[in-house]
Amino acid sequence: MSLVDVRNVWKRYPGKTVLENVRLEVDEHEFVTIVGASGCGKTTFLRMLLGEVEPCQGVIEIAGERLVPEPRADRGVVFQRYSVFPHLTVLGNVLLGLEFADSRVLGRTFGRRRRLAVDRAEAMLDRVGLLSSASNYPSQLSGGMQQRLALAQTLITEPSILLLDEPFGALDPGIRTDMHSLVRELHRELGLTVFMITHDISEGFSLGSRLLVFDKPRLDPHEPDLYGATITFDLPVGNRPDLDSVVENLNVT
């Protein structure tokens, strides 16, 4: 059984069809990259997986259970902007998920449990290379560091699915390459299933194990909003675990 099962999903707004008849099955540990023209419903699709937008028609199942239209802890998310909390320090941002889980009433932990949480958060910050900035506020970080922080903050609660909405769209090319290797490593180490929207086709090909192209199969030139977009291409690409293991075997011998 696949982890994510999208069956005949439609999304219509008054006078506009955004998505039509989207069908998709994604297995665990896949790295799905999503490309498509702007305004073709990529983000709407991601927000559906997130639970923020409800499909008008069709079913989304995750691990065999119908998706509740509300963001939940099994799906982490990093947006292009506004993913971190400006009023918390870097450490505070990463701690937040642990504190939510630990204290239902105050949303804050104290004493020994806090020290344990801080240890975990610091290990995660170390992993993404932000430990030296732990006491800074996000506004003092560069764009790339903020996105690293957003990743650390999301991954501390161990989601099984990671949703990325153009997370590196606003970054410089050099920093983007660093982020690619970080995401690739995290994907492998933590056994995540990743959905990533990108407007950079080469990023889509090199980073993912599977590339989805969203486009409108039908277009009425007099009424461009009449028909919606769907997945027109579904390609196995670059970063496949089977290929990686082949490469690793080659390196060993």
Binding site: F85, G97, V105
Partner: peptide, 15 residues
């Protein structure tokens, strides 16, 4: 985005 993010961290409305 902030409110969505907080929900994916499993925060309740009150938290």
């Amino acid at each position: 985005e902030q409110l969505v993010k907080a929900q994916t961290l499993d925060g309740t409305t009150w938290q």
